[in-house]
Computed example of a mutant assay.
Amino acid sequence: MTVPTETQDQLRIMMMAIWERNLPLMRERLDLLDRATLAVEEGSLAPELRSEAASTAHKLAGSLGMYGYAEGTDLARHLEHALAGPDDINAVEMHDLTKALRETLGL
């Protein structure tokens, strides 16, 4: 079954409107990941911030694909795994992933 082009266009417009409404939340989530990245770089990532950042990355990984950001989903998933694991986090990798995620989303 093929969805009519008009319906596809309407869905795209609706998704863009939802994305626009959620931009403040997306920026907050990226800001939290930036704070966690800075803490990793400084060697001062508290367990609470690490857990919150892992949860935030998980939420981003789960939602970005819906808005057409498949690459953003992959980047957020990598961040989630790095933050959720028991090992020390590579500061350069965390910085690069967070920066790439922000660039991918244009935020």
Rank of each mutant, 00 (worst) to 15 (best):
T56Y: 04
M16H: 14
M1Y: 09
A39H: 07
L32F: 12
E80I: 06
K59V: 10
H95V: 07
M1E: 13
A36F: 02
E48G: 08
E28L: 03
L23D: 00
G62Y: 08
E42D: 12
L23F: 00
Y69Q: 06
T73H: 14
N90L: 14
E52M: 14
M94A: 08
R12A: 13
Q10Y: 10
E71R: 15
R27C: 06
L25S: 14
R77I: 08
I18V: 15
G106Q: 02
R35Q: 15
L64N: 05
R35C: 06
A17V: 00
V40Q: 08
E42L: 11
P24A: 04
A91L: 08
R50H: 06
G62P: 09
T37E: 14
D34T: 14
S51Y: 09
L79Q: 12
D96I: 01
T104C: 07
I13M: 13
A84L: 06
T56G: 05
Q10A: 15
S55C: 09
M15D: 05
T37Q: 15
E52T: 12
R102A: 11
E71L: 15
A100V: 03
E103K: 14
A70N: 14
Y69C: 02
S51V: 06
L33F: 08
A46D: 07
Q10E: 14
E42I: 00
D87K: 15
V92N: 14
E28T: 07
T56H: 04
V3Y: 03
R29A: 11
G72M: 07
Q8I: 10
S63N: 12
M14D: 12
N90R: 10
H58I: 07
E42H: 11
E80L: 10
A39S: 08
